[in-house]
Design a protein around this nucleic acid. Structure first.
Lengths: 300, 300
DNA sequence: TCTATATCATACCTGTTGGGTATTCATATG
DNA sequence: CATATGAATACCCAACAGGTATGATATAGA
């Protein structure tokens, strides 16, 4: 059986007439006769009763007509679906993240993406940076989010945005950090750094900035993650320097002060395979570009 | 698009390899390549990523594979359905009845039919005899049940069974009708006849039998239907002679006595169009023959 | 580095088949 | 009985599916 025969069947059933069906199909009448006949022979079932005025479906033909219509509509629907999938509008986006961006920015990005591509499922996993690179290379994930990714020749690293820095201090301390006093305070302060692993990392960046500013920080602790660092800050182990977006969340026991003097020092990157041409990746990049980057900026 | 291409797509997806897919399809490899390529061109979507080891579905290809499987299974299912419809196992049986058979025998027949052909819907209507003949001629119904149908050249009348007769008398009468006294009783009795319309009919048959037995019955009333007749009997308007199957039901106010002396005088017939070759009619007749007729008896 | 191998793609041929035209057959209608 | 309508048939051609042979490419192994 071929779809051609179902098309002809539907046309003849609708027109109740082989000749008019042929006209509608833009072919001549004999091929219609032949294909219907072939279909009937294959099924071993008479589908039409030929009358003087044309052709009338038999009971079995009526059953088959319903199914044929269903099949054709399924065919059309699935063509649309493939095309949607090809445009990146259908499928599953495999996404990974690591570190502090997960707190505020990655949720924002995925919210925007879900809005742009509502039929794409998002499969999100927390994966360390080096592991992300491996997963991207073998095609397990389309895109990873994080900061300070190590370089890899197969991986393209794109900057989504840069943030300033803020400093978290214990809430119970009665201090106010601003342009005219921060340097003095920092020189005698103790700091909690994060993360410990995944060099290069945010801790390296913070240290390098402090050094640049002539501060040789006293290190109270180095934690695995930002949450641990802020807990230690709350109990007085030392100040923590964080990306400023972190300050927008409600942390108990700490308060934040922006550090505009440190500049927009903290990038948020996404990474993906240079050779990945999948529509889902294209969709992800399109969505990110439209919402987080100025036109024409930052693309490969 | 043609089903052939879906078959090849599924084979290649399953084997992840064009050559092995060709083997499975019992054709050579190049046609597979060509059909897949043609499909991809028609959709404007790459379905497979060709690798060194074979072929891997793209994301869009995966979407399409699922749909293709669904389409193929729908195709197979609908072939089965057409064949079932052709065997008369699927569809709607349009059936009509008229008169007393509706009380007991027609329900029995339809019960048996529903049991034999559980997927056939039964559309049952009460239609007068002449109207049944018209409806059968134009194909509105497949089969009609009744007694004493008028002859029609296009209609085949088949006898399903014959019944004896019984007489209904008022419950309050303290009489017992049997072989040795019925004639004497009937000669002085009054009778209620039914039905009034649709000649030839059961009333004609009853009169002819009574006459044959030398009884010139006194007619108390002629009713439209059996139910009215039995109500009149209950109130003493006269005896009613009925097909004996009627006696099996619980009627209030009357009691029945079999009349074996009258013979198996009351046929139940079904009628259908002589030229009707529809599988549903065939199914109906098969069912009836198997359950109500001795092998080889009564068929055209 | 140079095969050997496994894969898909291409070129070309052939036979099948789908579609076209002309005609016939069947049947109803005036 | 002529005519009209519609399906079926006969025959032709062109398109296309499938076959064989070969090419292109990339990987693995010597």
């Amino acid at each position: 059986m071929e779809l051609r025969q179902l098309r002809y069947l539907i046309a003849v059933a609708e027109e109740e007439n082989f000749g008019r069906a042929a006209l509608k199909l833009n072919i001549s009448q004999p091929p219609v006769t032949r294909q219907i006949k072939k279909l009937e022979e294959e099924l071993g079932v008479q589908l039409f009763k030929r009358t003087q005025k044309g052709a009338a479906l038999t009971a079995a033909g009526g059953v088959f007509l319903g199914d044929a219509r269903q099949i054709m509509s399924l065919v059309h629907r699935s063509v649309e679906r493939v095309e949607a999938a090809h445009r990146g509008e259908l499928g599953t986006a495999e996404v990974a993240y690591f570190g502090s961006p997960s707190l505020k920015i990655v949720p924002e990005i995925l919210q925007v993406f879900k809005n742009d591509y509502p039929d794409v499922e998002i499969n999100l996993r927390r994966i360390p940076k080096r592991e992300q690179i491996r997963a991207i290379k073998v095609g397990e994930i389309h895109m990873g989010f994080g900061r300070y990714f190590p370089h890899d020749p197969d991986i393209y690293t794109e900057e989504i945005l840069t943030e300033g820095l803020a400093v978290a201090v214990p809430k119970y301390l009665d201090i106010d950090i601003h342009a005219s006093n921060w340097k003095k305070i920092f020189k005698s302060a103790s700091f909690v750094l994060f993360p410990a692993a995944g060099r290069p990392n945010f801790a390296d960046e913070v240290l390098s900035i402090l050094n640049r500013e002539g501060i040789d920080p006293q290190i109270g602790n180095v934690t695995e993650d930002i949450h641990s660092a802020l807990i230690l800050t709350a109990v007085g182990e030392g100040f923590t320097i964080t990306p400023s977006s972190v300050a927008d969340l409600n942390w108990s026991g700490v308060k934040f002060f922006e550090l505009p003097e440190f500049g927009m020092a903290c990038p948020l990157n996404c990474i993906f395979r240079k050779s990945d041409t999948s529509p889902i990746l294209r969709a992800l990049r399109t969505s990110i570009r439209r919402h987080f980057q100025k036109p024409g900026e930052g693309m490969k």
